[in-house]
Amino acid sequence: MRKRHTALANAGKYLLLLIGGAVSVMPMIYMLSTSLRPNGALYEFPPHFFPRLSEITFENYQYIFTQEKFYLNFLNSVLVAIITIVLAAFVSTALAYCLARFRFPGRNLLFALVIGMMIIPGTTLIIPQYQLATFFKLTNKLAGLIPFYVAWVIPFSTFMIKSYIEGIPKEYDEAVYADGGSVFTVFFRIILPLSSPAIASVSIFNFLTSWEEFTWAMTVINDNAKRTLPIAISGFFGQHQFTQWGYVFAMSMASLVPVLIVFICCQKFFVSGLQAGGLKG
């Protein structure tokens, strides 16, 4: 009796979870299905969720993939993301190591700033940052995106990596110093390798931040060839004129697939970063 009750309860739970799961992915499936239909037939009546088999076409993808601009935009996004990740990983780990292991004047102030910058919305600083970009002649260049992305992700990255480094026993450091090692030896031989799970986890978040960043890229970049994917996608979407949804969604799919691949490969790291935050509070 009790067993049957549990089985029934479990069936109910799976049903609820399946409904929730369907709602979670439905918009993406709708996007995929729309991208596989001819551009002209998109607002037909009645609309249908899945394309008819006879209707399926790759013309939207053909159009996107024969545009030289698309490859440029894609490459720009990849380049900006990779450089941002590498720079942010190095700068935040070094900063986190200094904050976690040493007492120095201004340390508390620095840490307060790290926390404070996690709270203030980055967009509020967009005017002075835009002036800064203009001053350094960084507008309309990919180099105008990278330093600002790095600056935005550093607070969260530093915070996460610092709490991870604090869990590494100090005896390791002391052993290195006792053997005549230096601060660099500890950093490169102990801290960097041992905190690599935390670095990997924040790097994935930093990849997402850079890959999807919209506001700043829209503000700083005007040149078509210098645009990253989010701006290129939104460019297909005309606020006032006719929107070619087929192209919009084909391009969206092309930008979503790399993220899905990274997500499925590195699922473990996605989760571990969040868990640390939730458990420590």
Binding site: P27, M28, Y30, M31, L208, W211, E212, F214, P230, I233, S234, F237, V248, F249, S252, S255, L256, V259, L260, F263, F270
Partner: peptide
């Protein structure tokens, strides 16, 4: 993990 631009358009 899907970007804001994409989900907003959908």
């Amino acid at each position: 993990i899907t970007s804001w631009v994409i989900v907003s358009l959908v």
